[in-house]
Design a protein around this nucleic acid. Structure first.
Lengths: 229, 229
DNA sequence: TAACTTGATAATGTCAACAATGTCAGGATG
DNA sequence: CATCCTGACATTGTTGACATTATCAAGTTA
């Protein structure tokens, strides 16, 4: 799971940092339910830390867009919203499209080789029907290309500001959207374009790929909401 | 200066919020020099607040990417870096291109009219040779289109995470890049595309416009560095 | 009954003191 | 002379107590 360590910079030396990582994991994996109000005294005693450290950690969670705070009222975990999910896809289309374009220019030969190897892993896990691992491999794929852009600002905004949200939604819909085969084919085309150093094509294909994911997610959500009603 | 109020959500009710806005302005306008280390005791006594409130404000500044923090070492104002500036242009090209595309679809007729009016103001100030006000009008133009995208995530990432950096660099280079006339013409084409509801063209033109700004900034910086040596 | 006031309660914001960590000058050692 | 300890100092991290603000139920009034 290279994507987990790919972005966080320094080891969590301070209490607030460790707490931040703990809480982030708890939110992403659904231990703390979406939309829940955070009670500072409660959480602080639950984790055995002071409110000050907790507030610092909450501040960091706010940067990751996982909680929202209102002055004198408090913080709460973000809610689940189809509209927001669609908005995130639009932003990803723009930014990851650019990332793919830059990656075609800036990735080293070794990095391209590693990228191809991630794709092979994807192939294997499709044949083994390991649906769960495919999500990790998909994240690895996207992270590798983002990193390959060599644009530190782009990397930061995607990995630090947006991808926690992506993981938040992905975990809560992990049953849905199975389009591994199609996604694999699209990934394959993107890697080929990068191998040819064709940035223009890499951007076009990445945007197409993310738009296809978006369409698939939208249809899955519509089917789910119809099944419920 | 609509761009100033355009993005900040709630009034600064708390001390930490007011302090944050004060410090942000001080950094953006160069009162606190770039790259300077922040001494918590010093700043706290200078503004007459406790270290706790100051630390909260510093946390918010970190979100705006205006300061960086290292655990057990401290915070410092970001430094001036040509490379980072070029990276920001690349991110803007991707995100504002998408914003223009969405704005063409989603702006109301009234918003388009207001956008056209901002352009007229730009025209006036070119003829009056008010170079300083042109920067404001330029920011207003870009903010209006970003807002017009109606994508709250995109708005947030641009206005809250990226544009403070844009203003940081812009203020420190305000003498340079005078290309008002050319910028005006490019803005004009973009507005025309939005008026025609041609999203594809609006995106293309916006990306061209930002790339042209980037080229101009790069050349200006190269000329400046050669003049110094 | 509905709408408004009021007071008790609990939450968040703020502060100053304490603990832990990093910094740096001065001296000892090879 | 360079390098490595060492200890005093300053800064950051952490905590618990206090101040301020929201919340909500009980009571009052039209």
């Amino acid at each position: 799971m290279a994507f987990l360590t790919a972005c966080k910079l320094h080891e969590p030396v301070t209490i607030a940092d460790k707490l931040f990582l703990d809480l982030r994991r708890a939110i992403l994996e659904g231990e703390i339910p979406a939309g829940k109000k955070i009670s500072e005294p409660e959480l602080a005693s639950a984790y055995g830390v002071s409110r000050g450290s907790l507030r610092e950690a909450i501040g960091k969670l706010e940067n990751c867009n996982l909680v929202t705070r209102k002055p004198n009222i408090g913080a709460r975990i973000i809610g689940f919203s189809t509209e927001q999910m669609m908005e995130i896809y639009q932003v990803r289309e723009a930014m990851e499209g650019m990332a793919a374009r830059l990656a075609a220019d800036n990735m080293s030969e070794e990095e391209v080789t590693r990228l191809r190897r991630i794709l092979d892993r994807h192939r294997e896990q499709i044949e083994k029907h390991q649906d769960y691992s495919q999500q990790d491999v998909d994240l690895d794929f996207h992270f590798s290309i983002i990193q390959g852009s060599k644009n530190s600002r782009l990397i930061r905004m995607l990995c630090q500001d947006l991808y926690d949200l992506v993981r938040f939604y992905r975990f809560r819909l992990k049953s849905g959207f199975n389009r591994s085969e199609q996604a694999y084919q699209e990934h394959n085309l993107i890697v080929s374009a990068i191998e040819r150093r064709d940035g223009e094509m890499a951007e076009t294909l990445m945007r197409h790929h993310i738009r296809a994911s978006q369409d698939n997610a939208r249809k899955t959500l519509e089917a789910m909401s119809q099944a419920q009603s």
